[in-house]
Design a protein around this nucleic acid. Structure first.
Lengths: 200, 200
DNA sequence: CGAATTGCATACCGAGCGGTAAATAATTTG
DNA sequence: CAAATTATTTACCGCTCGGTATGCAATTCG
C-alpha cells in the first residue's frame, strides 16, 4: 500500500503475498481441515513460526487466503458486473466462472465451496465465514440486477434477489461438478441451458 | 433380509441400521474428515471396537452411511423418476430435493456434498466416491429423460444428458445454499426460475 | 561500536486422531 | 455341563495435529 518505510529489525525473508498464494492453492485442493500446517508451510516455503508470526494462526491464514483468492482468482466477477446489460452480466459471470473452475494451472472447482461446507470442531465458524463471503457476491450481483430493473433492462416485476440467487446456484452447482472433474465444455453446455431461464 | 437364523456366539447388542442412521447424521453435519470416531461412536451408542467389528473402519463406515443415506434420505428420487412426464419428473425432483435439504429433523443440506468435496490425506478417495455416487443419480435422471425424448415427451433434439446435468447443477447449488441456511421457500423460488429453462 | 528490535530455525508440547490388544460376557453346539 | 464362538469393555498404541518456547541471525537506532 504505502511506500514501505524501512522497518527496524531483521527483514522478512519471504513475500507474504506469494506465500499466501501458495496457501490458497493448498486450501483449495485440501479444504480447510484437510490442509495441515505441515503441508501449508512446506508449500509456502517457510517454517511454522514464521507463518504464525506473519499471519496469526491457521484460521487467520485461511481467512486471508480467501481474501486473496477473492482478489486474484475472482477478479472476473468485477469484469462481469461491469457489463452493460443484465443478460451480459449474467452470461459473462457464468462463463468466466466456468473458466475459473477449470483452469489447468489451478485446482478444479472453487475455494469457497471446496474450503468446507461442513467442518469439525470449530462450531462451523469456517463454514459460516465461507457462506457469508459467498453471500457478499450474491448481494453484489443482486444490486447490479436491481439497477438493471430500474433501468428497464430487465422486465418489470423481475425480482433481482431471486435472479441473483438463481445465478449463484448455477455457479455453485457448476463448482461442485468441476470439483468432480467435469470439463469446461460441459459446464458451458449447462450454462447455455441455464441462460434460458434468464428474463430478457 | 432373510429370516435371521440364530447365529452362534454372543448376539450383537445394537441394531446396525439404527447405528448407521446415527452415523449418517454425524457425517452429514461434520463432513467425513470433521466426524471423529469419538463423536461417531458416541452418537451410535457403541464403543469403538464394536464399530470396527461391525463396519470395518472409518472409510467403510462412511461408504455404508452414504448407501444408507441414498436408501432412506433420498427415497424421493425414486418417486420423482416415476412421474409420468419429463417436466413433472424434474419439478418433483427439484422440489422434493429442496424439502430434503431443509427438513427440520435433519441437518441442512446434503450428505453427498457436505461429506467432502476436498479431502486431506486420503488422496481424494472419499471425494471421488461421493462424486461417483452423485454421477449415478445424474445418469438415472438422464436415462429417464432419454426415454422422455423417445416418447416425444420432450422436444426433438433435446439432449437428455445436458438437461440432466443442468437439473443436478441446480440441486447441488441449492444444497450449497441450504447448507448456508437458506430456507425452503427461497429454494422453491430458485426452482421456479430454474424450471423456465426446461424445454416442454 | 553496542543496544534494541525483529525474523528465522530447531526442537518441543499436550491433545486428539484412527485403530487395536487383551480380558470378559453372552450365546450356540455337543 | 464344557468347548467354541462372537460381542463388548477397558485400556492402550503410535502418529499427526495445531501451536509454541528458546536461542540465534540480521537489521536499525543512538
Amino acid at each position: 500500500m504505502a511506500e514501505s518505510t524501512r522497518k527496524r529489525g531483521r527483514p522478512r525473508a519471504f513475500d507474504t503475498d506469494v506465500a499466501l498464494d501458495r496457501a490458497v492453492e493448498v486450501f483449495w485442493r485440501r479444504g480447510y481441515e484437510g490442509a495441515s500446517l505441515s503441508e501449508l508451510t512446506a508449500a509456502m516455503g517457510i517454517e511454522r513460526p514464521s507463518m504464525y508470526a506473519a499471519f496469526g494462526n491457521k484460521e487467520d491464514l485461511f481467512r486471508l487466503a480467501v481474501a486473496r483468492y477473492a482478489e486474484v482468482d475472482m477478479a472476473y466477477v468485477r469484469v462481469a458486473l461491469a457489463q452493460p446489460t443484465a443478460y451480459q452480466v449474467i452470461e459473462t459471470f457464468l462463463r468466466t466462472n466456468a473458466d475459473a473452475l477449470t483452469r489447468s494451472d489451478r485446482p478444479a472447482g472453487c475455494l469457497s465451496i471446496q474450503g468446507g461446507l461442513a467442518c469439525g470442531t470449530d462450531d462451523g465458524r469456517v463454514a459460516t465465514f465461507l457462506a457469508e463471503s459467498r453471500l457478499t457476491g450474491e448481494r453484489a450481483l443482486a444490486e447490479r440486477l436491481s439497477r438493471a430493473v430500474a433501468e428497464g433492462d430487465l422486465p418489470e416485476g423481475t425480482d433481482p434477489d431471486r435472479l441473483a440467487r438463481y445465478v449463484m446456484v448455477v455457479s455453485e452447482g457448476n463448482a461442485v461438478h468441476a470439483a468432480a472433474g467435469v470439463g469446461r465444455e460441459s459446464l458451458y453446455a449447462t450454462i447455455d441451458l441455464a441462460l434460458r431461464a434468464v428474463p430478457r
